[in-house]
Design a binder for these strands. Structure first.
Length: 488
RNA sequence: GGCCCCAUCGUCUAGUCUGGCCUAGGACACCAGGUUUUCAUCCUGGCAACAGGGGUUCAAAUCCCCUUGGGGUCACCA
């Protein structure tokens, strides 16, 4: 099959909703393959469903692809020599192909109504019999057909599927897959309103755009024979195929909204990093080798090979995505991380002010203190709330630590000691704390615990020294002092 | 149900095409230790899989067949 043509691959989204994770991964694989082969990656918008299309969907899909770092060589906003790249603008081209199909006889009029056929299907279902379109309209004479059309009877154009023909593909992922033409019904290629259907225009456009490799989801595998037949009718070279396995939900079925978020946009909103998402998607159904699970786009490209894509479906593993995100987040520079996390803080109502250099420096200090504790950008506002407002009311063990018998004495002692310190934060908090604990005859922990709770409301969190620095002298002392009367 | 696809730890996977190096490797999650004033990070260790049955072969996770299980698809949606 056409393996020596220049590599041209496409991602063909339908702008009827948000970009699905499966679609995002398909796009990623197409992109990686094109980049690996030095080929062309193009975007074609399949907006033939005028009912469900929306401008907003298209924009969001393009934004999502860009967010992932996938750039396209031809398509919307990029142009190209084989456009238009919107199917809604290719009507003239389709009309020519339709005329040709009718003339050459591989498209024929069928006057059966959708309702009739639906009724037949119903009957078959009730009788538990397998239903397939009965191509009796094929027998309609040209005169009768013309006459009924002239009389204004509504009709669709069906594709005349040949008898006893073997339709096989050598799928890059699955190997040889063969269909018998008897299994393929005379499908509708042009609707009664004159608009062509997906299987028809998809093949038409792939041929016209010289697509060399069709890399798409496995759910399209059964569409392939229909599309191959179009190539054969057209006398165009067939592309080669790679049917990528599905992304499965926790239930083992095709990922759907029932089992969690399915749109890439949902994960963007949750604060996942684009590098992490790219990495994770590239690891679903593909692997570089037996040990590499964190990699750059360049490394993915260098190793990319359609034959290395798995055959079986992969369950979307949130834990793994979460982990990868943490890996990237921890490897980021404090500066970049501060920038990335700022929108999430502002969304939570923090830092909604002009960011002068002092504020930025403080934010970077905060981010540095929390970096080892974060896996998602969106986690910071909740974790660091104590640094933006009141001390959250301690709960559970934290409340207990603050209510300990010696806590008031220890806290006021430590507040006094800190107040006397020359620098802020004190160079060695431990050196200040130790004697106080000893004087009270308790372990260091007995002092540190209530101190943390008094300052942040929590037993966990950054190092004490960082907490004092972030809070500042005044605020730190105030919190240590005000915690005392609360418990006494 | 017809047609098509698939089958290694709970999960993502390496190994399968080109049988022996596999007493099946890595990672996530989980569990247990260690480092750390806390939490987290980090380090060490542990748990855990070739769906079943037949072949072929000196040798099978790897090749063949059957069974079972799972999935996809059966629109004038894409």
């Amino acid at each position: 099959m056409a393996s020596h043509r220049p590599v041209r691959v496409r991602f063909a989204p339908s702008p009827t909703g948000m970009l699905h994770l499966g679609g995002a991964r398909t796009a990623l694989f197409n992109w990686a393959f094109a980049r690996r082969e030095g080929g062309t990656f193009l975007l074609r918008v399949e907006d033939t469903d005028t009912e469900r299309n929306s401008e907003e969907s298209l924009r969001s899909i393009l934004d999502c692809l860009r967010w992932l770092g996938l750039d396209w060589d031809e398509g919307p906003e990029a142009g190209g020599d084989v456009g238009p790249y919107f199917q809604s603008e290719r009507g003239e081209f389709y009309a020519q192909s339709i005329a040709r199909g009718v003339e050459e006889g591989w498209l024929y009029r069928c006057f059966a109504t959708a309702e009739d056929l639906e009724q037949q299907r119903e009957h078959a279902r009730a009788a538990k019999k397998n239903w397939r379109f009965d191509p009796t309209s094929r027998g309609l004479s040209q005169e009768d057909s013309d006459a009924r059309a002239a009389a204004g009877d509504s009709f669709v154009l069906r594709f005349r599927v040949p008898d006893h023909e073997e339709i096989g593909i050598d799928d890059h992922i699955r190997g040889r897959v063969v269909f018998q033409s008897e299994e393929v019904e005379d499908w509708v290629a042009v609707r009664s309103d004159g608009n062509p259907t997906y299987n028809f225009v998809c093949a038409l456009d792939d041929a016209a755009m010289s697509i060399s490799h069709v890399i798409r989801g496995e759910e399209h595998l059964v569409n392939t024979p229909k599309q191959i037949l179009v190539y054969r009718a057209l006398g165009e070279p067939e592309p080669s195929y790679a049917h990528v396995p599905l992304i499965l939900g926790q239930d083992g079925k095709k990922l759907s909204k029932r089992t969690g978020d399915t749109a890439l946009g949902d994960y963007i909103a949750k604060g996942y990093l684009p590098q992490a998402m790219f990495n994770f998607l590239g690891l679903l159904g593909f692997s570089i080798d037996d040990a590499t699970d964190v990699f750059t786009p360049e490394e993915l490209i260098a190793a990319f090979d359609l034959k290395r894509i798995n055959k079986s479906g992969a369950i979307f593993d949130q834990d793994r995505l979460h982990w990868i995100c943490g890996e990237y987040l921890r490897s980021m520079s404090v500066r970049d991380l501060a920038q990335a996390v700022l929108p999430h803080l502002q969304q939570a109502g923090f830092l909604n002010c002009a960011m002068d250099s002092a504020k930025t420096a403080w934010l970077e200090q905060l981010v540095a203190a929390f970096q080892p504790r974060l896996t998602l950008l969106s986690e910071l506002p909740a974790q660091a709330a104590a640094f933006f407002g009141e001390v959250p009311t301690p709960e559970g063990k934290a409340a207990k630590a603050l209510a300990a018998e010696q806590a008031p004495v220890l806290l006021s002692a430590v507040a006094d000691a800190l107040e006397g310190a020359n620098d802020w934060p004190p160079q060695d908090v431990m050196a200040i704390a130790k004697p106080i604990a000893e004087a009270q005859g308790v372990g260091l922990g007995k002092l540190m615990q209530p101190m943390r709770v008094a300052l942040t409301g929590s037993l966990g969190g950054p190092e004490l020294k960082d907490i004092l620095a972030l809070l500042g002298r005044e605020q730190s002392l105030a919190r240590l002092r005000s915690a005392v009367p609360k418990v006494s």
